[in-house]
């Protein structure tokens, strides 16, 4: 019972935050709201008994990406330029509304066939999960089944993912942390200090 109350409250907070993010123009406030959004979703993951997913969401969503967004914000100007006020209205506003409504109702219609949360006859529970639950310990010796699947059964796949993440990290470090050519906005004194 209390789980339902927590779920509904957190989801309502998520909806409020998303609408506020869309409607705001202060980019710093939007980055702060991104942090709140990802803390909320991490809390939802914890409520749904997925602490490892919540771990990743908190570390990547609330921690690293907030810092990266702030670093990006430091390189560009603070306020967002008003776009919709200046751009000519090339299409009527009801067309995107209809598209969104149709897509949304198709998605809601699709959720009717999804088995209930934690249902024992769901395909996720009945297909191959039993094999891993029974044989993981003998075949790999890893006590955590998720870790065994990620690091042993799918080891090459994980290696590829780690390579992608490593490449992305190197690229980001080169972009925001590497030696930069001095922008023209600095005064001469500052430029000399930087060169020295």
């Amino acid at each position: 019972m209390i789980d339902i109350v927590i779920d509904i409250t957190l989801l309502a907070f998520l909806a409020i935050t998303s609408v506020a993010i869309v409607r705001m123009t202060n980019l710093f406030a939007i980055v702060m709201l991104f942090g709140i959004f990802s803390l909320l979703s991490a809390g939802l993951f914890v409520v749904m008994d997925a602490p490892d997913v919540a771990f990743t969401e908190a570390a990547v969503g609330a921690g690293i990406s907030t810092v990266l967004m702030l670093a990006t914000l430091a390189l560009v100007k603070r306020p967002q330029k008003p776009y919709y006020g200046e751009a000519p209205q090339s299409h009527r506003a009801w067309l995107p509304l209809i598209v969104v409504a149709v897509t949304g109702s198709a998605l809601v219609y699709g959720t009717w066939d999804i088995p209930g949360f934690g249902a024992p006859d769901a395909p996720a529970q009945s297909h191959v999960a039993r094999y891993y639950i029974e044989n993981t310990m003998q075949e790999t010796g890893v006590p955590n089944i998720v870790t065994a699947v990620l690091a042993s059964y799918r080891g090459f796949d994980t290696l590829g993912e780690v390579t992608v993440i490593f490449t992305a990290a190197v690229a980001v470090l080169l972009l925001i942390g590497g030696k930069r050519s001095k922008p023209a906005v600095k005064t001469n004194k500052k430029g000399e200090q930087d060169e020295a």
């Binding site: 803390l39 991490a42 919540a54 771990f55 908190a58 570390a59 609330a62 921690g63 810092v67």
Partner: peptide, 11 residues
């Protein structure tokens, strides 16, 4: 998890 959240929040 709660401990990690506290650290991430601080950073």
């Amino acid at each position: 998890i709660a401990l990690v959240y506290a650290l991430i929040n601080f950073i």
